[in-house]
Design a protein around this nucleic acid. Structure first.
Length: 702
DNA sequence: TGAGGTCAGAAGTAT
DNA sequence: ACTTCTGACCTCAAA
């Protein structure tokens, strides 16, 4: 096309551009009312008492456990406690405040704002962003968000209009719990608009938790035909309204706390952490001041397959402009106009500014789902107009990735090639370490040195009880023919989990608890029952690999979403004396102590960081036989946690130690968990230097 | 089983 | 008020 933008000529297309209204695209400055103290959350020593949740709590046991404890919600002007509680915890029954219906908040938000309402919105732009202090989450008062108020009003109103049951008491209590836990941490100072890794992870954590919980509640209700449930949007809106977000100020280039390669499962996640602000649109842009004028420049784009985008190789992207009904199949298309995002991209081409690129990939694990991969910074090299398939004009932009960044999307491409056999995995020692014991092969890879394999052991995919373990109480399974459903309150398995299914519809753990009750051999439900998420073997393609300095480690070829099942800890169940023997024989014996749930640095809400007696303590030796789990290294900032899971079995104890992801884990990222404290007098002698490299590293582990 | 259609909906921009 | 396109759900044909 003649219109192609050359490097030294302004393309004629630009002439079409209208005079821009030059106003800052973002002039609203949020008020920083309060702020959570998340760092405490990550400190293993930030101990908080833990209480199991008896059935008499004000909340159903399935979702009360999110809330800290010990501090009355009324003690707003509390002082910083010596050891501040983590934002979430396995709720203490006696200390959980009564839930305040969310409606109350809505009423407040409708205008009768209390003294905390700020009228200075829009004033002092940028100032508070720069002179704030350290961390980066915004917590604005609900009253501050007038837009939020209208959104809530609208939601409230519309649900009444549509005659959808408004008894959202559960959801309200849920939100209230989270809110309260934020209020509890109002003792921190102001923040600026820039996030950091912790705040980003923290927000994503809360988002996913809230989303899963809303999903859990929705699942437990009778489904209303025709009503599309969007827990992703619900959770997103709530956090937006509460100001639980970061990196609000738009920026060109890197976003603090977000790394190249990070993955997301919902567009809302990227909104909340400031990676890509529009909840749906593919092009994010901002006004940039140039001398007197201001012009729009693109800051980030999402390439998700809605348009006829094309990727020549992993480092080049041909991106289509927006508009023109190109994405609405069946609808009449029109020529795209050089306005909004398209204009911003055009300007960015000429300014030469960096544009963040987020690539949407199909999620193989969740048929309908999509995964968004942050692929780092690109520059726009050229643009042109071409006729789309429908015959209308479409803008095209060629983006080239800036070199020197961490690999991201290309990793996905490589994995795909290893899988379909078009490329060989470099350093492959053995194609299936499990020799067929797992339903998915487990690769053994060493591209670091010439060590051929780990010390000898027998691959065994599950737990071996050398002697039978008695059940404390006899139990009976369910008889849910088509699989257990949250809406079936008669199902004994659901009841044992506090009235809710512990997993979402796509098999994601909702939150940690002292014990998950899965269906088992004494249940009549089928193998694909939702309450058997940890059964049926591996779901992701794992690889045991030689690390640079920590011996062998474990990672996954596939992306793993937060809460997803990874594997169980296999081996022989032994007693403490045998464990001691083993460790005397070999300091590096593979012994797993599932005796307390102390997992330093773990931060999946629902369980206290405090050491807690496991209701069914187990010690497992994977020295002679075990599975992939034995290769998982320790980290003080782990991406995996373990969780006891009891499968219904009327004859014998069928307890398993199961690993779940605590956050979204991109492909080829090492999987780690917190090893915890070993119950032994000699433990301190066996302290090992920790090499996890985390900022939160305590320096050693056992 | 999977591809394609349907549609209410959110944040941000523009008017 | 408009723009943008998501993500859950629904439908129907193909395997």
């Amino acid at each position: 096309m003649e219109e192609s933008g050359g490097e030294d000529s302004v393309p004629p297309a630009l002439d079409k551009s209208r005079v821009l209204s030059v106003r800052p695209l973002r002039c609203l400055v949020p008020i920083f009312a309060s702020t959570p103290n998340f760092p405490s959350y990550f400190h293993p020593q930030a101990a908080a008492p833990i209480v199991c949740n008896p059935p008499t709590t004000p909340f159903p046991a399935g979702f009360s456990p999110f809330y800290p404890f010990c501090v009355s919600p009324n003690s707003q002007n509390m002082q910083i406690p010596p050891q501040p509680p983590p934002p979430f915890g396995f709720g203490g029954s006696a200390t959980i405040p009564s839930p305040v219906p969310f409606n109350v908040l809505r009423a407040e938000a409708n205008g009768d704002a209390g003294p905390s309402r700020r009228s200075s919105r829009g004033l002092q732009p940028l100032q508070s962003e720069e002179d704030g202090s350290s961390d980066g989450i915004h917590v604005t008062d609900a009253e501050d968000s007038t837009r939020g108020a209208t959104a809530q009003k609208r939601r409230c109103g519309s649900s009444q209009d549509m005659n959808v049951p408004t008894s959202d008491v559960e959801t309200d209590a849920l939100v209230e719990n989270i809110l309260e836990s934020f209020n509890l941490m109002k003792f921190d100072t102001f923040r600026r608009a820039d996030g950091d890794k912790e705040s980003v992870q923290y927000i994503l954590l809360i988002y996913d938790l809230l989303r899963r919980k809303i999903s859990q509640i929705e699942d437990s209700k009778e489904s209303t035909p025709g009503v599309t449930r969007r827990p992703d949007l619900r959770a997103g809106t709530i956090l937006m309204n509460k100001g639980i977000r970061t990196n609000i100020r738009k920026r060109i280039g890197t976003v603090p706390g977000v790394e190249v390669g990070d993955i997301f499962f919902f567009r809302m996640e990227m909104c909340l952490i400031g990676l890509h602000a529009p909840s749906m649109a593919g092009i994010d842009y901002m006004g940039l001041k140039v001398s007197q004028d201001e012009e729009p420049v693109a800051v980030s784009i999402v390439s998700s397959g809605g348009y006829e985008d094309d990727s020549e190789d992993g480092n080049v992207l041909i991106y289509s402009g927006q508009g023109g009904n190109a994405y609405k199949r069946g609808l009449e298309t029109t020529d795209q106009k050089l306005e909004r995002g398209n204009l911003a991209l055009e300007k960015s081409l000429h300014r030469g500014n960096e544009v963040r690129v987020i690539r949407g990939v199909k999620d193989i694990a969740n048929l309908t789902g999509k995964i968004y991969v942050y692929d780092g910074l690109y520059k726009i090299r050229e643009s042109w107009v071409e006729k789309g398939k429908s015959g209308s004009n479409v803008f095209k932009y060629k983006l080239v990735r800036i070199s020197g960044q961490l690999e991201a999307f290309t990793v996905w491409k490589s994995v795909q090639q290893w899988k379909d056999g078009t490329a060989a995995r470099v350093g492959l020692v053995k194609s299936d370490l499990s020799s067929g014991a797992e339903n998915i092969p487990v690769s053994l890879v060493n591209d670091v040195d010439d060590e051929k394999r780990p010390a000898n052991f027998t691959y065994y995919p599950t737990l071996k009880y050398l002697k039978p373990v008695n059940l404390t109480e006899p139990s009976t399974g369910c008889s849910c023919q088509g699989g257990c459903l949250s809406s079936n309150s008669n199902c004994p398995c659901i009841q044992r989990n506090g009235g809710y299914l512990p997993y979402t519809a796509n098999g994601v753990l909702i939150s940690q608890t002292a014990l998950i009750h899965e269906c088992g051999s004494s249940c009549k439900c089928p193998q694909n029952c939702k309450n058997r998420a940890s059964q049926g073997g591996l779901k992701v393609r794992l690889e045991v690999f030689k690390t640079k300095d920590k011996g062998w480690g474990l990672r996954s070829w596939d992306p793993i979403r937060s809460g997803a099942f990874i594997c169980e800890y296999a081996g022989e169940v032994i007693d403490i004396s045998r464990a001691e023997e083993l460790r005397v024989e070999n300091e590096n014996a593979y012994v797993f102590y599932a005796t307390s749930t102390n997992q330093p640095g773990q931060f999946m809400p629902g369980v206290s960081i405090e050491s807690q007696k496991n209701p069914f303590p187990l010690i497992i030796s994977a020295t002679d036989s075990g599975n992939v789990a034995r290769f998982m290294n320790h980290s003080c900032s782990p991406n995996v946690v373990w969780q006891p899971v009891l499968r219904e079995n009327s004859k014998e104890c069928d307890l398993h130690i199961v690993f779940y992801a605590v956050r979204h884990i991109p492909p080829m990222t090492e999987l780690t968990y917190g090893y915890g404290i070993v119950p032994s007098d000699k433990a301190h002698q066996r302290k090992k230097k920790c090499l996890c490299g985390s900022v939160k590293c305590s320096g050693y582990f056992y």
